[in-house]
C-alpha cells in the first residue's frame, strides 16, 4: 500500500555556494526557469542536466527565487545548484519595483550598449522576481 504513490515522488535539493535552502525534500513536481523559459520536471523523467535561468523555482506550494546556476536530474533526484537564491520573505516587493523602474529609466534614456545590457538584465530579473508576489 502506498508504494505506487511513493514511486511518483522525487527528491529535491536546492543549494547555493553560500547555503542550503532545501535538502532531500520529497516532491511530486518541480517547475524551474531555464534561459529559454520555464520547464516542468516530473518523476521518471529522462536524466537531464541544464542551465538554470533567472526566475522562480516552484514545488509543492513553495517558491524560491533563483539567479543562474545549474540543475541535474538523475535517479529520481533533482539537484538545483543555484548561484544565488532567495526565499520570498528575503525579498522586498518595494525594492524590486524600484529596481525595475530604475532599469526601465536607463533603458529609455541610455545609449551606452554595456549599460543598456546591464539594465535589460536588471529589468528582467526584477520582473521575474516580482511574480513571486502575485497570486
Amino acid at each position: 500500500m502506498g508504494r505506487g504513490q511513493e514511486e511518483r515522488k522525487m527528491k529535491l535539493s536546492v543549494i547555493t555556494p553560500e547555503r542550503k535552502l532545501v535538502v532531500d525534500r520529497e516532491v511530486e513536481e518541480v517547475r524551474l526557469p531555464t534561459p529559454a523559459g520555464y520547464i516542468g520536471l516530473l518523476p521518471h523523467h529522462f536524466p537531464v542536466m541544464g542551465i538554470l535561468g533567472v526566475g522562480i523555482l516552484s514545488f509543492g506550494g513553495e517558491k524560491i527565487a533563483v539567479e543562474g546556476g545549474f540543475f541535474r536530474f538523475e535517479k529520481e533526484t533533482l539537484e538545483v545548484l543555484a548561484k544565488m537564491a532567495w526565499k520570498p520573505e528575503e525579498l522586498s516587493r518595494k525594492q524590486l519595483k524600484e529596481e525595475k523602474e530604475k532599469a526601465l529609466q536607463i533603458l529609455r534614456t541610455s545609449s551606452d550598449p554595456q549599460e543598456v545590457e546591464r539594465a535589460a538584465y536588471r529589468f528582467s530579473r526584477a520582473s521575474a522576481f516580482l511574480t513571486l508576489f502575485q497570486d
Binding site: V48, M49, G50, E74
Partner: peptide, 13 residues
C-alpha cells in the same frame, strides 16, 4: 560519461 538530455545544449552547459 552518462546519458543526459542537455538544456539548452551540451556546449552551453
Amino acid at each position: 560519461p552518462q546519458e543526459f538530455i542537455f538544456e539548452p545544449g551540451l556546449e552551453e552547459v
